[in-house]
């Protein structure tokens, strides 16, 4: 049980072991541990952030849907209103058009009456002239007696 040179040998072995551990074993294993810790922490943080983002997005989506609903109902209302307006407008236009047509027709009728009257007058004047010529037995110079003719025709009118 005496202390002997084994002590020195053991010390050398020990020193070598510690040196090797310090140089080649501890750093890579410890680094990988630390790195994994960081990765996990990052992952957890990212997951939490993702969760928050989902909540936010859901909120946002709800808001968007709500606005869209509001907008669409507004649009429908507007369209309804516009359609009503259009119907009213077209009714008005139709009425006006009808009236206008009526007026035009009336005017045309009037005009045609006038034309007919004019034609008749002319014919009557010619007839009267012919009759007068025959009665007088002489020819009447149309150009000479123009004023008479027109006077007569006026009386006929």
């Amino acid at each position: 049980m005496s202390i002997n040179a084994t002590l020195i040998g053991q010390m050398i072995t020990f020193a070598l072991l510690v040196w090797f551990t310090m140089k080649y074993i501890w750093p890579p294993l410890f680094d990988s541990l630390e790195e994994r810790k960081k990765k996990i922490a990052d992952g957890l943080a990212a997951a939490e952030k993702g969760q928050e983002e989902i909540l936010l997005a859901e909120k946002k989506a709800k808001g968007v849907i709500k606005t869209a609903k509001e907008q669409s109902s507004e649009i429908v209302n507007l369209a309804q209103k516009r359609a009503n307006d259009l119907i009213e407008e077209s009714k008005d236009t139709a009425k006006q058009e009808g009236e206008r047509l009526l007026v035009a027709a009336k005017a045309q009728i009037e005009q045609e009456i006038q034309q007919a009257k004019e034609g008749l007058r002319q014919e009557v004047a010619d007839l009267a002239l012919n009759a007068a010529a025959q009665i007088l037995g002489a020819e009447i110079d149309k150009a000479k007696h123009q004023d008479i003719i027109s006077k007569v025709s006026k009386q006929l009118g």
Partner: peptide, 21 residues
């Protein structure tokens, strides 16, 4: 004397140290 080497101690501790490494 002092320059005695305990071969078994040296051998087993070196082998075990090697195993550890």
């Amino acid at each position: 004397g002092f320059w005695t080497l305990n071969l078994d101690t040296l051998f087993f501790s070196a082998v075990l140290g090697g195993l550890f490494l």
